[in-house]
Design a protein around this nucleic acid. Structure first.
Lengths: 342, 342
DNA sequence: CGTTTTTCTGGTATCGCTACCAGCATATGA
DNA sequence: TCATATGCTGGTAGCGATACCAGAAAAACG
C-alpha cells in the first residue's frame, strides 16, 4: 500500500469544514471550539468534540498560522547538538515551551557563523515566533534579519555587550576569573589553562580573558605558554596536560575550559600515576554528573544550564503574551564547586 | 522600541508581490526564481535576486507550505533530549536532513507513551513531512494517526515486530545476548545484569531478554536476583553493583545496560579498591568516548548511533523524493568492543 | 518567411484556516 | 413594554505563497 493510498483512506486530510458539516455547525464554530472552548456553548462544543474524535481530525496549523499570522514554533540554534552541555538547557527550554503549547525547532551551527546565518534565515522563513541563540557573536546579516523580523530573541552562552534583544546567561569571564583566583587561594602557584577552540567563539575568548585577568590581579606574569588550545575530546585534554607539564615541570594545577578535557586529563593522571591533587590539581568548567562521581571528584564551576533554558523560554513566552519589548539581561551567575581534585 | 515598531521599519514582512513590483516582474517569476532558478531567464533571475537582496526579503514558508501542500520539517521524538546517547543520532540526522533542505522539530516523550501521543498529534498538526520515532511501542492512537497521515515514518531504537513503516536500528536482544555470551567465553561464571527502567521501554525489555537467552544457551540458571533495575545515573550504577556483590559474593562480572551505569560502577570499584577486571569485570552498552578513555577502558557494545541517524534521514528523504512506500527494515548491527575492563 | 516547437512569463484560483463583523437569540434594565 | 447589553453563531474576505494553464516571446526548422 503506497503513501497516497493510505492517505486516501485515513482521516489525515480532513478539513475543518468536513468536521463542521458532520457536526452540523459552521467551520467557525469548529475553529473556536478547538482553540477557545469557552467561547462556544456547551452543546456546540460537545458536537464538535464528538466529530473530531470520530474522524480523528488533526487541524492544519500551517493554514492556521498563515491565517492568524502566528506560529507556535521557537527556533533554537546551538553550536553543536552533540555536546551534552547544551542538552540540559535544551531539555529545560523544551519543557517550559511545551507547557505553553510551543515547539522547538533545533539547528546546529557547528560553531560557524555562516551556518548560523543560514539557519536564522531558514527559521525566519518558517516564521518561528521566537529565537534562542546560544551565541552572542553574529554576522551583520543575522543582526539585520533578526531586527527586521521583530520577533523576540534570546541570546545565551555569554553576556553580550550589545544584545540583539534579551540575554540570559552567566559571565564566562567572571567564572574563569573566579576559578583561577580560587585555585590561587588554595595555594597553587603555577596554574595552566586549557581552552576550547577560540575561533568565532566568544565564550572561549571570555574564559581566557578571565584567566589572564585573575593572574594579573594576583600579580603573576601572563605567561602565554601556560595556555593551550585544545579541541574538546578526552585525548585532547590528556595531551594538553602532558604538554603543559613537560613545558612547566613545576605546574601544580590545570584549569580546563570543558569537562571532557578535564576528565581526559584526570584519566591521564591515573594512567601515569600522578596523584590528583598531590602532584597536580584539576579544575573544570560546568557541573556535569561525571565530575561529581569521578575518582577523585573534580572541582568545577556550576553553570545553571537548566535554569538558563527555563528562563529563556519563560521570557520568550511572556513576550509572546504581550509583555513590552524591553532589553532584558539576566545574569544567572555561577558557583564554584570545590571537590577532591584540588 | 517595541516589537511592532521594529517590524514596521524592517523588511521582515515584505511579501513576494512587493519584491515583484520592485523587480518589475510578476510574483510568479519571483517564486520561480527563488525555488527553481533554472526555470527562469538569466535576466529575470538577476532582477529578482537584486530586489531580494536589497530589501532583505525572507519568503514565507508557511504560505508556501499551505499552497504547495508540502513542508520541509521532520519531526523527531526521543525519550529524553538530555540523554547524550541520542545526541549523536540527532546530530547525524540533522546534518543529513539539512543537506536536503529539511529541518528538525524535536520533542521529548520522557519515556511516556501519552507524551509521545501528544507530540505526534502536535507534529502532524504542523504537517511535518516525516517522523522519526525513537521507540517502537506506541499507543493505538499514535498508530492510527500516523497511518492516516500517510507520511513516511522511521522507527528506531529497536527492531519492531510490527513496524509502522520503516525501521532503522539494531537488535537490543541480540546485542545483550552477544555480550553475555562474550563474557562467558572470557571465563566469567557469574554475570550480573543491571537494566534501565523497563516500563514502557521495549529496548530495556529486549536487552534483558537477550541476557536471559544467553544464560539459557549456556545452560546456566536464570536467576532473577542477578538482575537489577536502576534509573540511569552514576550513583545508581554504583549502588546496583554493590547490591549485586552483596547478594552474590561470587559475582565476577557486571553487565550494565547503559554507559552511565557502567562508569558509575567502575568509579565505585576504584573507591573500594576492587580491581577491574581482577575482582570484577565490567561491560557496558553503547560506545561513548568516556568508555574508551576511562581507566581501565571499558568493554562495551558499539551501536552505530550516527549511522542510524544518517540512514533514517536518508530513507525519509528518498521517500519524500518519490521512492515507493515499501516497508524497509534496516538492521545496522552492533559490535563487541573488548577492552581492559573484562 | 511562415510554421512548429520550445522557452519563458503572468493571471487566476486555490490551499485550510482565522479575523472581523453582522445578526440573531436570550438576558437585563428602565 | 421597549431598549440596551450580552452571548453565540455564521458569512465573508483575506493570510502569502504555489499549481495550473494560457499565451507571448524566442528559437528552430523546412
Amino acid at each position: 500500500m503506497n503513501s497516497k493510498a493510505r492517505r486516501a483512506e485515513g482521516g489525515g486530510n480532513l478539513k475543518m469544514r468536513d468536521i463542521a458539516r458532520h457536526a452540523g455547525v459552521s467551520p467557525m464554530t469548529v475553529s473556536r471550539a478547538l482553540r477557545e472552548p469557552s467561547a462556544v456553548s456547551e452543546k456546540m462544543r460537545r458536537k464538535v468534540e464528538a466529530a473530531v474524535r470520530e474522524f480523528g481530525y488533526v487541524p492544519n496549523r500551517i493554514a492556521g498560522s498563515l491565517s492568524s499570522n502566528r506560529t507556535n514554533v521557537v527556533g533554537l540554534i546551538v553550536p553543536s547538538i552533540r555536546n551534552s552541555l547544551y542538552a540540559s538547557m535544551i531539555q529545560a527550554a523544551s519543557d517550559a515551551l511545551r507547557a505553553n503549547g510551543l515547539h522547538l525547532m533545533i539547528g546546529d551551527s557547528g560553531h560557524r557563523l555562516e551556518d548560523e546565518e543560514a539557519l536564522v534565515a531558514a527559521f525566519l522563513a518558517q516564521r518561528v515566533c521566537g529565537l534562542i541563540l546560544h551565541n552572542t557573536v553574529h554576522s551583520k546579516r543575522v543582526r539585520k534579519l533578526v531586527e527586521a523580523s521583530g520577533i523576540p530573541v534570546i541570546e545565551t552562552g555569554n553576556l553580550p555587550d550589545d544584545p540583539l534583544d534579551m540575554a540570559v546567561s552567566y559571565s564566562n569571564f567572571e567564572a574563569a576569573r573566579a576559578m583561577t583566583l580560587h585555585l590561587a587561594r588554595l595555594g597553587y602557584r603555577k596554574i595552566g589553562f586549557v581552552t576550547l577552540p577560540l575561533r568565532d567563539n566568544d565564550r572561549s575568548e571570555e574564559r581566557r580573558r578571565g584567566y589572564f585577568a585573575a593572574l594579573s590581579e594576583l600579580g603573576r606574569p601572563a605567561d602565554g605558554s601556560l595556555v593551550l588550545e585544545a579541541a574538546g575530546g578526552f585525548s585532547e585534554g590528556a595531551d594538553a596536560l602532558v604538554r603543559l607539564v613537560k613545558a612547566h615541570p613545576d605546574l601544580d594545577a590545570g584549569f580546563f575550559a570543558g569537562e571532557v578535557l578535564a576528565v581526559g586529563a584526570l584519566f591521564e593522571c591515573q594512567r601515569r600515576g600522578w596523584a590528583v591533587p598531590g602532584r597536580i590539581a584539576i579544575a573544570s568548567f560546568d557541573d556535569v554528573d561525571l565530575l561529581r562521581h569521578a575518582v577523585p571528584s573534580v572541582t568545577t564551576l556550576r553553570i545553571p544550564r537548566q535554569e538558563i533554558g527555563k528562563r529563556s523560554a519563560e521570557l520568550l513566552v511572556r513576550r509572546l503574551q504581550g509583555a513590552p519589548a524591553e532589553r532584558v539581561r539576566v545574569d544567572l551567575g555561577f558557583e564554584i564547586v570545590q571537590r577532591e581534585s584540588s
